[in-house]
Amino acid sequence: MTGTQTVLVTGVGRHVGARVAAVLAADPGIRVIGVDTVPPTSPERVGRAGRDGGAQLQFAQVDLRSPDITRVIAARDIDTVVHMSLLSGPARSRSAMKEHNVIGTLQLLAACQRSDTVRRVVVRSTTAVYGSSPLDPAVFTEASEPAEPPSSGYGKDAVEVEGFVRGFARRRPDVAVTTLRFANLMGPGVDSPLTRYFTQPVLPTVFGFDPRLQFVHEDDAVEALRRAATEDHPGTFNAAGAGVLLLSQCVRRAGRPTLPVPGPAFRLLGELARGLDRLDFSPEQVALMSYGRAVDSSLLFAELGWTFGYDTASAYADFLRARGLTENLPLAVFDTVAGLVR
């Protein structure tokens, strides 16, 4: 390593952003500037970052939509930018979420393009860019063209963001640009529409559909982002744990009852739940819950020379364990009855 690296991490106000900032700051050769609209929420995590990294981690409250970010990048000699502030969940409103995701990225990339010091940009994207439809191949590679690209929500934001990132990479060929398309994150600290879904007492499902789901464990996501931030790995890569779980397998492993509802009713239920601020059954979420999605991450593993420690199934198992969702009533009943039969 030559001298000190200065990394700007966006989205440190949330769990994975804070973890990536902390793990980077733990490296004595790296200085980390964390930015977000809100300070890191979890004091425990900031404390840990402070203990591990000491003064190496500084937080700056910046709204990416404002030109302030240009000043931050110019003033601090940033050489690496890790952009992970894309919001997937329902923000205050859809338009606020879109503005945060799309305008925020535009501002950030505009600032990077002006900078003479930025040498590396890492963007956390999502496999939601592939959408979810019955016309899609079973397994997406990075080169696959989705049959029906997402037309709304998080997925569409991510498609637009990736478009800006490609444009930036074209205009600044001297900057190594890495885009990581993560599958749904799973793990003890992850709070997403999908993790909230799995902790409901009864799980509504779309009648007649059993989607294939893929997860990536938060530890693996953090490590993949760390590697992308500290080594040059230009390109766009899928990042999902190996294998798939069917939704029916997920609910059985959690021992949860399901409530199959016809597609249109599922959407209505989603609207109601959104009113309660519990769940997100946006159209793209309903499509995922119907048709599922799987991606091939072998390109990423070959590029990094490293493979995720968790596959889809073990990432999900770790999530269940951490949330204490280990009591499987149907299985207990079965074992009792089976004991009598034997």
Binding site: A138, G243, V244, Q249, R252, G292, L331, A338
Partner: peptide, 22 residues
Amino acid sequence: LPELLAFLRRRIAGDYDVDEFG
């Protein structure tokens, strides 16, 4: 019977594999 019970238990627990195509 034991084989059948083991099969049913795996199904209830979700303890089986599907490949990436489902």
